Amino acid sequence: MMDIRKQLLQTHTKENTELIVAYIGNEQERFDTLMNLFLHDEYRVCQRAAWVVSEVAKLQPEIFTPYLAVIIKNLRTEGLSDSVKRNSLKVLQGLVIPKSLWGEAADICFGYLASKSEAIAVKCFSMTVLLNITYKVPELKGELQILIEDQMPYGSAGFKSRGKRTLKALQEIQ
Rank of each mutant, 00 (worst) to 15 (best):
T77C: 05
K99H: 15
L131I: 11
Q47V: 09
K123C: 04
S117V: 12
T33F: 06
L131R: 06
V56M: 04
P153T: 11
I146N: 09
S88P: 03
E62F: 11
F110I: 02
K14N: 13
C124K: 04
S81H: 02
P138Q: 07
A121W: 07
Q7N: 14
V56P: 10
G79R: 05
S117L: 11
K58V: 11
C124R: 07
Q145Y: 11
K14I: 15
E42H: 10
Q151S: 12
T11R: 15
L37Y: 04
V21W: 03
L113H: 00
R162W: 05
L39K: 01
E27P: 04
P61F: 10
S54K: 05
Q7M: 10
D150F: 08
R48G: 08
T65Q: 10
M35V: 13
E139S: 13
M35Q: 03
R165Q: 15
R44W: 15
G79L: 02
I120W: 14
L75R: 00
M127C: 00
L131S: 04
R5M: 12
Q28Y: 13
D107I: 04
L89N: 00
Y67N: 00
V122Q: 05
S81G: 01
E139L: 07
N132G: 11
W102V: 08
T77W: 04
A57L: 10
I63M: 10
K14A: 09
E172M: 13
T13S: 07
E104D: 13
K136R: 14
E143Y: 05
N16H: 04
L113D: 01
S83I: 01
A105S: 07
K168C: 07
W102K: 08
G158D: 15
K164W: 05
M152N: 07
A119V: 14
K14V: 15
M152A: 02
E42Y: 12
V84D: 02
S156V: 00
K141F: 06
I146S: 09
L39G: 02
V91R: 02
G79Y: 09
Q171C: 11
E104C: 05
A169Y: 07
V129S: 03
E118S: 15
A49G: 06
E62R: 11
R86G: 01
I63E: 01
K85A: 05
Q28C: 06
W102I: 04
R5C: 10
K160V: 02
P138W: 11
Q151G: 06
N74S: 13
I173H: 02
V70D: 13
K14Q: 13
L170N: 07
M35K: 05
V129W: 00
M127V: 09
S156W: 01
S54F: 03
S100H: 06
A106T: 03
K73S: 08
V21N: 00
V129C: 03
M2Y: 08
Q145N: 08
F38Y: 15
N74Y: 11
L75K: 00
A57C: 09
S126F: 00
Q171N: 14
A105W: 01
N132Y: 10
Q145G: 03
A50G: 04
T33P: 02
I173W: 08
K164A: 10
